[in-house]
Write a protein that binds this DNA or RNA. Structure first.
Lengths: 209, 209, 209, 209
DNA sequence: AATGAATGAGGTTTCATTCAT
DNA sequence: CATGAATGAAACCTCATTCAT
């Protein structure tokens, strides 16, 4: 029946909305307190639902972090795809990515992403449950590498530096560790930091004239 | 009595050796499993002593991590002091530091240090018990900044890039996140990675000719 | 909805019943084994629930004893208020109180109360968490003093003995130490003991004729 | 050999002195902190010896309390014997005992004695290891009873009140619970309290004229 | 479908006791 | 003898997960 269909899809929509909400709240709490210091109770009560309800959406706490990680990675990939489609120079695209990670909408999530990716605790977690996550991260690395290769081909970047090391260095910059400290000093706005950091990197890899 | 004195110092020496051993083992386990996934039981049994014995050396689990962190930071500072005394160029000194962190004796510890320093969990830990640790890290940052300033003064480094951002970027490179991946690929030995990474950084900050 | 309301209150009722049960069992075990010799596991398993469930009702072991103490003190106070309302003589009222403590429903609890109130361990406990408990005990003492004063005013009791010492002596009688021994001898029923003890006390404080 | 004998007895004397010291210190600490809150470490370090040395004198913590209790009881018994030998009236002898317990040299120990004797923890302790202690206490009670009987025979005390209840009531007065409160009020010196308390008791049991 | 009370494994920490030195 | 480092049992408490309602 149509009404049932509508009903079903309405429920489904609500379900997805709540799932989104859980992810968002969980992200915030994980970021504030850290993974282990955050209890499922805290997440549930901040969302405004019962603890058991969280388990209707995610089989366990692990899966919750993995889901967050996955969602963010997907979003980064989307953004990167958008960048790839841009007709701008490789450097401009990577600068856009940096900006997206730090100064753009993603700035907050970048911290959690980094915090999750580091920390030995979660390495094991990913090994067990999140096999696909390794792939996601690989794909991000591949896209960066791809852009860098393109830049090399165009004669923009130094071909004597292995692309994989360039990639690795670039990704290292996406590390909110010292970024926070810089912001805390209060001398810079995010845009400045991204600009200067990018400048160092791109001058570092630019083809010798 | 001399014999008593000797006796005393022997005991003391054994004590310190054991303490060292605990720190070393704890470091390994924390690195493998992460802070929360590691139990005091695990550490003790790996050292080959009883759980209670660990508590004779460190008042709690927290203090154990803090002790590890502190010891490593002190060692880094020592190394940096040694670098500062070198009569080599600023760049050479920073390169030596990078090498020490990644390719040298410190390579393994760097990972834990980074893993500890990230992760929201421990931020709070440090706020409570390890007030001095923040200082230690600050001191490392200051030494790096100092060398960078010196390089600027000598006309080696670009004076249009703020020193704090240079420092921050340099410290970002000390981040074993992607380093591990590079090693895993198997194409490079640590020395290569350090060399190339340094190259990118120093070309990035070098004074325009 | 009414059903929801009923539901809620049913749950709440069950909750309170369980809480009562925990208190009752805990009281027994504390009485048998003493505070420190009693583990939360023991209490839980005697109630027939899991250890964690006890913590849903009481935040800690301390709070459990305090809750027991508080509940009993409140009941004593209620009883004393009832006594105060009686139109009988001061002596009759105090005799009723003695009877309530030893021979009445409260006989069992009196022991724990006394056992808790003594013992250096718990003095410190009360200082920390049970600030209000000191007050409760003080209030009991005050009521007794009040009745004694009234008796003095009526010319029943000896005005040359300070009320505070009378009070103190009276409360000393509420001390199951030797009471147990008397019962164990088997020559007396509680009523006898209370009667004779009261007789000694009241003759001891009666106004000289 | 004589010298060996002397040596032996000297050592033995030192041993006993230390044992006394341990008992005295342990008594203080138990009184301050309570049995369970006191660690063997605390006792040993206050005495100024090593923890292991305490175990050369007492097989365990339990035995330490029992020894304290036993020693005190013996002392009380001695005092009572001294009282019994006095040619004063039964009442005077009991008053002397009360004074000894509260206002005399024994005042401090009385608290621990009471604190030990109450508290369920130790009831079990005595049942296991200190079978003889029950006897000691019984003997004290018997002496009191004996004096009371004598008083009855002389026509001093009321023969309608069972001696065992008189005894029990008398012993109840030896209960520092409320005594402390009285002292804390600051209105009385120990002598006053003992005097008034005794007055109540003896008037309570005196033979009707 | 949502709830949240109940569970119990697992972690940290203490401390009485032992025993090699 | 005296020592005190080492032990390990046992306690308290947390919290991810389940399941009856």
């Amino acid at each position: 029946m149509a009404s049932s269909q509508v009903h079903r899809s309405l429920k489904e929509k609500q379900r997805q909305e709540r799932e989104e909400l859980i992810l968002k709240v969980a992200q915030d709490v994980f970021l504030e307190r850290g993974y282990h210091e955050t209890s499922m109770d805290e997440i549930a009560s901040r969302v405004g639902i019962a603890k058991g309800t969280v388990y209707l959406h995610f089989p366990g706490k692990d899966d919750l972090v993995i889901a967050i990680f996955e969602r963010d990675m997907q979003e980064i990939l989307s953004q990167m795809d958008a960048c790839l489609d841009c007709q701008t120079s490789p450097q401009a695209r990577l600068e856009a990515l940096l900006h997206f990670m730090y100064a753009g909408l993603f700035s907050k999530r970048t911290q959690l992403l980094s915090s999750i990716y580091h920390s030995a605790d979660r390495q094991r977690l990913f090994a067990e449950k999140g096999g696909c996550l390794r792939d996601l991260w690989e794909r991000v690395a591949q896209r960066v590498a791809q852009i860098l290769e393109e830049g090399k081909a165009r004669g923009d970047f130094d071909t004597t530096i292995p692309t994989s090391i360039m990639t690795s260095t670039f990704l290292s910059l996406i590390s909110p560790k010292s970024y926070e400290r810089l912001l805390a000093e209060g001398q810079f706005v995010p845009e400045d930091i991204v600009a200067h950091t990018g400048k160092i990197f791109f001058r570092g890899i630019q083809a010798k004239s």
